[in-house]
């Protein structure tokens, strides 16, 4: 097995998540900013389930550093959140790959909630303003966009044959 096989797709999906994490629309109301989904968590969790041998806590943590500088947050914060998402994915991989989208969405909702609480708590400790809406908005939207991310990446990954160790890509679809 070529260890680099399909790795570019994982990288490309992360770059897309980065763009989506900071893109601004020239129109639309202000409160839309409070609803920005945590794309990094959705994408990382997907790869954690779909290709557990390629994406683990370590690579997620390193990817998190780039997200941190991109959004101007403290270094290591996104890293630990993404590592957590891939840890859950790996820990419950067999079960998760048999789940329906709805069940997976519930898991993502849980992870996104924990991630938001971790992020906001850390920012609070670092004296950045705290707001309840900032927790709930991204949490629900992340769960809502997860099926889109999963369907899109599953279809592309099938075509380029990203090797998951258990090879059950897209079992949920």
């Amino acid at each position: 097995m070529n260890p680099l096989y399909g790795g570019w797709l994982i990288l490309a999906s992360l770059v897309c998540a980065m763009v989506l994490a900071v893109v601004r629309l020239p129109f639309g109301p202000d409160w839309l900013a409070w609803l920005r989904p945590d794309w990094a968590v959705a994408v990382m969790f997907f790869w954690g389930v779909a290709a557990p041998s390629r994406v683990g806590p370590m690579s997620a943590w390193i990817a998190g550093l780039f997200f941190d500088v991109l959004v101007g947050g403290p270094l290591g914060l996104t890293g630990i959140c993404l590592a957590l998402a891939t840890y859950v994915a790996r820990r419950f991989e067999e079960r998760l790959s048999l789940y329906t989208f709805l069940q997976q969405m519930a898991v993502v909702l849980g992870i996104a909630a924990v991630v938001q609480v971790v992020k906001r708590s850390a920012l609070f400790v670092l004296d950045v303003e705290w707001s309840t809406l900032a927790v709930f908005g991204p949490m629900f939207t992340t769960a809502l966009v997860y099926p889109l991310v999963a369907i899109l990446l599953t279809n592309v990954a099938r075509r380029v044959n990203v090797r998951g160790e258990s090879g059950q890509l897209g079992a949920a679809s």
């Binding site: 943590w61 403290p74 270094l75 290591g76 890293g79 630990i80 590592a83």
Partner: peptide, 15 residues
Amino acid sequence: RPLLVGLTLASCVLL
């Protein structure tokens, strides 16, 4: 699991 604990510690140090 040890890896996750280690990464958490690393993040805490950075923070």
